[in-house]
């Protein structure tokens, strides 16, 4: 893959990043998995893949917004956990939803204000909030369990116009994000901030406000993923989200979005998330140990960031 990306010139007239690489990888991986595990292409398994991938797609979309500005949000994982913990609280539906939204907006605002206004490095800020949110999630739901309201389970496990609900969730997340990124001023300004925050400021872009908004959106997308996940596992679990912090970054980076900011695409993120999901599903079908899968996922992450050579050394 390293040589492949070296051969292809970066797209001249675009800031989408080399998302077509992940498309090529996805085709190859699907072919390999389908060939070695015939079960893969059965409708039952495919809808299973879709269901597995959905929370990752939703989280990674929020992560994409943050990474385009040149930031990083490590706190999405614990926020997903916290959301599932809130969902199984014994509260009326409206109160529970409001509480979940309030939690997400609070976390996003604290992250954003710390980073944009108080000059804290995104990694440190979100690492700190990850720790705090994890603590709150553990207090809210010390052991996995609880009852997920029926309407959430229905929205996750049912179908709409014959489509599995998972696809509807993904479609809604993609449409919202596509509108924000490609149609609004906010979206253009995200790329401007990622390209050069000082120049953006000189051109009247409200850099700080937009960064805060971005972290709030990232938290809200993670919250959405939390709702989906709660419906799927039918319980609240303060540790269920942990993997999504890193997985979402892997998916975004796989999709050609530059971790230095300013370059990225939604299609890349969706394809990247699907690739992560297909690899996981394929390994399950091939009876690869769950623990070995952790190792392979880590290696994949290393491979992806190694391909994204940057100018500077360090963070």
């Amino acid at each position: 893959m390293a040589t492949l990306s070296a051969l292809l010139p970066p797209p001249r007239n675009s800031r989408a990043g080399p998302w077509y690489l992940v498309l090529a990888c996805l085709v190859i991986v699907v072919a390999v998995v389908a060939w070695s595990a015939p079960l893969f292409l059965t409708p039952g398994n495919l809808s299973n893949v879709a269901a597995q991938v959905t929370p990752l797609v939703i989280t990674a979309i929020g992560q994409t917004l943050v990474i385009i500005t040149g930031g990083l949000d490590l706190s999405v994982g614990s926020l997903i956990s916290l959301t599932t913990a809130i969902i199984v609280l014994d509260l009326p539906g409206w109160a529970m939803v409001l509480l979940a939204i309030a939690a997400a907006v609070t976390v996003g605002t604290v992250n954003g204000v710390g980073i944009a206004f108080l000059n804290v490095h995104p990694i440190i800020m979100t690492l700190a909030s990850m720790s705090v949110v994890q603590g709150v999630a553990l207090i809210t739901r010390p052991v996995p369990g609880g009852t997920v309201p029926g309407w959430i389970s229905g929205a996750v496990n049912g179908s709409l116009f014959g489509l599995p609900a998972a696809l509807v969730w993904i479609a809604v997340a993609v449409v919202i994000a596509a509108f924000l990124i490609y149609r609004t001023r906010f979206g253009l300004h995200l790329f401007a901030i990622g390209g050069n925050p000082n120049s953006a400021l000189m051109n009247g872009v409200r850099v700080q406000r937009n960064i805060v908004l971005t972290y709030i959106l990232s938290s809200l997308f993670a919250m959405g993923a939390g709702f989906y996940l709660a419906g799927r596992i039918a319980s609240g679990d303060a540790n269920v989200g942990t993997v999504f912090g890193l997985d979402s970054i892997t998916a975004v980076a796989l999709g050609g979005t530059s971790l230095s900011g300013g370059v990225g695409s939604l299609v890349g993120t969706v394809l990247g998330s699907v690739l992560v999901g297909v690899i996981g599903n394929g390994m399950n079908l091939m009876n690869v140990s769950a623990f070995l899968q952790i190792v392979i996922k880590g290696a994949l992450l290393l491979a992806v960031v190694s391909v994204q050579r940057r100018k500077q050394i360090g963070l």
Binding site: L72, A253, L301, V305, S306
Partner: peptide, 12 residues
Amino acid sequence: VRASAVIVTLGV
């Protein structure tokens, strides 16, 4: 390789 230190060390 100049990969991001956060990601590399987390991955490792």
